[in-house]
Amino acid sequence: MSTYTAEMAVKSHRALWIAGAVVLILVAVAVLSSWTSRCADYATGGGLCVYEPALGLPQSIVLAVASVGAAAFCVYRAYRAGRG
């Protein structure tokens, strides 16, 4: 039978912060890798096709930067949990 120690608490907090960072990085990758395309055919000439991020370029960039920033904060907190 094991007892819950302070060292176990630190390890569990560190693991949660690292898991949060991994999830946030995956969100950033998913946002930047989701693309969509649409085409319009014109009767007089060739068509026009647009290939862009699913959320739109500005929104994708903002969400990706926010996710990476939050992941960096999670890594910092994991580091601090190990020192404290």
Rank of each mutant, 00 (worst) to 15 (best):
V62R: 09
L48D: 11
G46Y: 02
A64P: 12
C39I: 10
A19K: 15
T36L: 00
P53E: 00
M8T: 02
R38S: 15
V27D: 00
V27T: 10
T44Y: 02
Y76E: 01
A71L: 07
R38N: 12
V10C: 04
R77C: 05
A15S: 04
V23Q: 10
A70F: 05
V31E: 14
I18T: 11
Q59H: 09
I18G: 00
V10N: 00
R14L: 01
A30P: 14
A72C: 12
Y4P: 04
V50M: 12
Y51F: 15
V50T: 14
F73S: 07
A21P: 05
T3C: 01
G82K: 04
T44G: 13
S60D: 03
T5N: 04
G47H: 13
P53A: 02
F73Y: 14
S33D: 01
R14G: 04
C49A: 10
Y76S: 05
D41G: 03
E52F: 08
V65Y: 08
G56R: 11
T36C: 06
G45S: 11
K11I: 01
A66T: 02
S33Q: 11
M1C: 01
I25A: 13
P53S: 06
C49W: 04
V62P: 10
A43Q: 07
A54V: 12
V22M: 10
A30Y: 13
A64C: 15
G82L: 03
G46M: 03
R83T: 07
G46S: 09
C39W: 06
V27S: 00
V75L: 15
V10M: 10
Q59Y: 08
V10D: 05
I25P: 04
L63I: 15
F73E: 06
T5Y: 02
H13K: 09
P58L: 12
G69A: 13
I61D: 01
L55P: 06
A28K: 11
P53C: 05
V68F: 14
G47N: 06
L32P: 01
L55S: 03
W35A: 06
Y79A: 02
K11N: 02
Y76K: 08
G20I: 03
A64R: 13
T5C: 00
S67M: 04
A70K: 07
S33E: 07
D41T: 12
Y51M: 12
A81D: 08
T44W: 05
C74I: 03
V75C: 10
S2W: 01
R83V: 11
V22W: 08
L26S: 15
W35V: 07
A64L: 10
G47F: 04
Y76Q: 04
G69P: 00
L32V: 09
D41Q: 12
M8Q: 12
R83L: 09
G47W: 04
S33L: 14
S67E: 01
A6M: 09
P58A: 10
Q59A: 15
V50D: 14
G84F: 06
L32W: 05
S60L: 08
S67W: 01
